[in-house]
Amino acid sequence: MIRLAVPLALAAGLAPAQAQEIDPADLAVMAGPCANCHGPDGRSPGAIPSIAGLPEGEAAAKMLAFRADEDPKATIMPRLMKGYGEAEIRALARWFAEVGQ
């Protein structure tokens, strides 16, 4: 089992293939802060977009673009996404895609 230290993952820029190796219990904790803005399980009651059920590929592409400062309209996500490695972002994208099903 891989217990990814977040900074390590960031430094190593892990390959997408390793996304599924993040322990589900670790992933649940990693997804915790997202609910504060995107609502419980990514279902938003307010102005921030819902992310529950967003197709995995689309969500990952958006999050990686935020991280690379490639979305000029984004406000907060570029600053937040710089705290996660690519493998973590892909795992989070899958997490919220599956929550919606």
Binding site: A35, N36, C37, H38, G39, P40, S44, P45, G46, A47, I48, K73, T75, I76
Partner: peptide, 20 residues
């Protein structure tokens, strides 16, 4: 526009975290 978006997202944050 950026300041306006953050004002709206701030209200969105409040709604989400109180639901959570």
């Amino acid at each position: 526009e950026f300041r306006r978006a953050e004002a709206e997202y701030g209200a969105g944050w409040y709604a989400s975290i109180c639901a959570d």
